[in-house]
Design a protein around this nucleic acid. Sequence first.
DNA 1: GGCTGGAGTTGACAGTGTCAACATCTACCG
DNA 2: CGGTAGATGTTGACACTGTCAACTCCAGCC
Lengths: 209, 209
Amino acid sequence: MAGGRSSGRAERPSLRDACLAEALAIIEREGVESLSLREVSRRLGVSHQAPYRHFPSRDHLLAEIVAGAYRAFVAHLEARPRTGGAQGDLREMGRAYLTYARAHPLQYRLMFGTPLPNPAEHPDMMRHAERAFGLLRDAIAELPSTEGARDLRATHLDALFVWSTLHGLSSIMSSDALDTVDLDDDLLEAAAAETLRRIGFGLRASKSD
Amino acid sequence: MAGGRSSGRAERPSLRDACLAEALAIIEREGVESLSLREVSRRLGVSHQAPYRHFPSRDHLLAEIVAGAYRAFVAHLEARPRTGGAQGDLREMGRAYLTYARAHPLQYRLMFGTPLPNPAEHPDMMRHAERAFGLLRDAIAELPSTEGARDLRATHLDALFVWSTLHGLSSIMSSDALDTVDLDDDLLEAAAAETLRRIGFGLRASKSD
DNA sequence: GGCTGGAGTTGACAGTGTCAACATCTACCG
DNA sequence: CGGTAGATGTTGACACTGTCAACTCCAGCC
């Protein structure tokens, strides 16, 4: 039902895929807000209405690009090393999260940083998003509970803490705001490691309440 | 040189201020991306070029609104209670940060969440932004250093940690992403308190390295 | 053959930001 | 008092955008 329209098996010259690729290229160079279907058409040498054969609207095209970013994000998170126990696993998840954000700042910003096309109108995009959040929450739910049953509320609190810490660092790292403050690359590298360590402390802190 | 054009002393009917107010109202109802100077003009009953007498471009108007949000943010941070020592002060700062983000999600998003008009072209807006960051960094620099001189790098790391944690929670709280996950208001309240506590743990953790 | 439906094109419309030329009104200076 | 300069606001244009509607084309199928 979903996806698979592209590389499944060569299905036509696929102007559809060309649009997605060209749109992404435009966003990379000029930013989301200056993405225009007409410019995409122009670059592809087709008429300004051609993309409408494949996308109901500009926002639908954008939503598909964002969905792609989520898909890649989820894949990256799932591809993390799966060696240690629950605690080590969460750490790997955090590392993977930060790695992706550092390696793909544009995609990260597309997912979390920019005003998305109305999410309610693009359920497919949201499905991928929820999948990503679910991964993180699951990893936390797996944490060993030192005091018997892990209650749901505590899990939510922990998830929110981990999520917001990771997200905070990532969005700062992939934002322009950094330019106003002078921080070198080494520092950011260190900050990533440090943040992971501190998340661990923070989680343990909640137990020793 | 800067500011003071508004409420200093009644300086004309001040279409300028009316534009800012109306623009903010539009953003509140429709979102940033659908803010248009022409709509502002229409609502104010003036011609579509009138605002250009007061703002060189749409982005300049937007930048001024964002600058206003930063100004209010800085004022809110500076108005925090100043009772305790450095440690208590940082805690108050954190509380004030989260309070503002909760009370003014729109403004918070305007500052950190949306693609701003090219910051380099709006130095005034950036001046206010830096002021806000500076407050936080200063509060951290004041922390008692248990091991003699507080080195600059450590301060930066700490600042980045505190900042990103606060920002992460705030931006999640003021974002639509929350809607995809079911979290009640009580939980958010608890998360704010919990996060402040955990930031404390995180900072101490860096010392006991 | 004829017909149907997808893919792409052309032409229009309303909306936008912005430049340029015009009008008007206000204040100040001779 | 008259006149002139500057700020303020208006009208008209231009290029650009997303999107609707009607048109052409061409492959495949009965």
